[in-house]
């Protein structure tokens, strides 16, 4: 009985800790000047979630994080930190 209770206690404790870790993973970043919360820190996923129009290979797009250009080839491995500023840009009409 006592042993079983202990196990349950450990399980509950672990679950609470895990939830807290997940909570911590939510970071706040700026995407094109607008603050937003994100659960992923992967730049590739952040861009994919933002650009809803289908665009194979993200042609015509570029991304800068904190004013540094991040090449497309590095998006998948690039980790975004809390309070980072992400700019996603493309061609627009202009003289």
């Amino acid at each position: 009985m006592n042993f079983e209770f202990k196990i349950q206690e450990i399980f509950l404790y672990t679950k609470t800790r895990l939830n807290k870790t997940i909570e911590l993973a939510k970071i706040t970043i700026k995407i094109n000047g607008i603050e937003s919360k994100t659960q992923t820190t992967c730049l590739y996923e952040i861009v994919t979630q933002f650009v809803t129009e289908p665009n194979p290979n993200f042609k015509g797009l570029a991304v800068a994080v904190n004013n540094e250009v991040i090449p497309k080839s590095q998006w998948a491995t690039f980790t975004v930190n809390d309070m980072d500023s992400v700019e996603i840009i493309t061609a627009a009409q202009g003289g």
Binding site: N32, G33, F50, V51, T52, E53, G60, L61, A62, E87, I88, I89, T90, A91, A92, Q93, G94, G95
Partner: peptide, 14 residues
């Protein structure tokens, strides 16, 4: 062309 922040909902792209 100029370079500006992407409008994620824009259908037609220059």
């Amino acid at each position: 062309v100029a370079l500006r922040r992407i409008n994620p909902n824009q259908k037609l792209s220059i």
